[in-house]
Design a protein around this nucleic acid. Structure first.
Lengths: 201, 201
DNA sequence: GTCTATATAACGATAGAC
DNA sequence: GTCTATCGTTATATAGAC
């Protein structure tokens, strides 16, 4: 197996570090050290920190939507497809903290150009498919806002995990992605206000 | 009216800058410049950058929950109180972008100690009241997860605004907090999957 | 393609005059 | 309480040997 190129390793190290600490929180020295390289060597592969950051983001976000798109466009019934989508999203967010954090950082720090590029190359297709599904399932709501709400509550349940640990009502199973997925699916199926009593372990 | 103290002005400038660019993205020189002070003067009021940051966060988050608590503990019917709470939260997030961004930054960068303090001093009471309300309104769901979902979709509709502009389904009224509030209330009242057709302008 | 060495600027923080 | 001046460190980025 041919060892991966330095450029590739730099990118992957950079993605992890930028997700952890953000653009300003990571130095070129940090990246070099984690790659076992000297600082100067990085500048052979990337003109400056900005170019490295952009390349890292492109790599980090590329090919992220494919599995979601496949589920969104499956031939199962609408309702089932929405639940499948949320479930898959939960599993992806759980196993890929890096992706989860980078989205949040770009929402905070991304300039207009970067957000536009992100929207077009990563989220456009998925959003369109999810909007269509929402419009068919729930013609009474604005499809884009409904889609945004569903994504939002899913994302937030993962992103707020570090804080939720210290909040009233916390239970250890809230850290289990399957518990979160089941809760979200129940919310979608029965609505947030669901008065029928069910047993809980 | 007595001019506010330097310490106070430093804190307020720092809050704005940290919300915009994060801890690593703001230098002591930046803060000094925006205050019309010299760098050295800041160190008369705060021992180091870390202490200034902590004081700024305490100030930024103090007294944030009172209005929400008042609504959560009002004497209106449960259902109405939940809708009022979401509506107030929308208005607060809309008029206070700084607070909105600081929460997100702390979720990303806050260490365990800071998150624990934030949970206890800012969010504990509100969370408890919201959990109780959720438990009564919807005994079929885990109260904390339901509360988190509601907070999550509300927060996300505001935090994703810069990206949503470039996504399919965007409409200009999605930037209007009242539109978002109305959508969220409709979702809570009728559930996310709401098949009855209603007219939309 | 990676290294050493270095230029240049910005950083956090301190000392001491006023 | 604010200033000027400066220390030591770290940052981005470059030049040139190998």
């Amino acid at each position: 197996m041919p060892r991966q190129s330095s450029r590739q390793e730099i990118l992957e190290v950079a993605i992890g570090l930028f997700a952890d600490a953000g653009y300003a929180g990571v130095s070129m020295r940090d990246i070099a050290r984690f790659c076992g390289l000297n600082v100067g060597s990085i500048y052979h592969h990337f003109r400056d920190k900005d170019e490295l950051y952009l390349a890292a983001m492109q790599q980090a976000f590329s090919g992220r939507a494919e599995r979601l798109l496949a589920v969104l466009n499956s031939d199962r019934p609408d309702r089932r497809r929405l639940l499948d989508t949320v479930d898959l999203l939960c599993r992806q967010l759980a196993e890929d903290q890096t992706f989860c954090r980078l989205i949040q950082r770009e929402l905070l720090d991304g300039d207009e150009r970067r957000l536009q590029q992100l929207a077009q190359t990563v989220f456009a297709e998925v959003t369109e498919a999810l909007n269509r599904l929402c419009a068919r399932l729930s013609p009474g709501h604005d499809p884009a806002l409904l889609a945004g709400s569903i994504i939002g509550m899913t994302l937030h349940l993962f992103q707020s995990a570090p804080l939720r640990r210290f909040l009233p009502g916390y239970r250890p199973e809230h850290d289990d992605p399957e518990t979160l997925s089941r809760h979200l699916q129940a919310m979608l199926e029965r609505g947030p206000i669901f008065t029928e009593e069910v047993e809980r372990p």
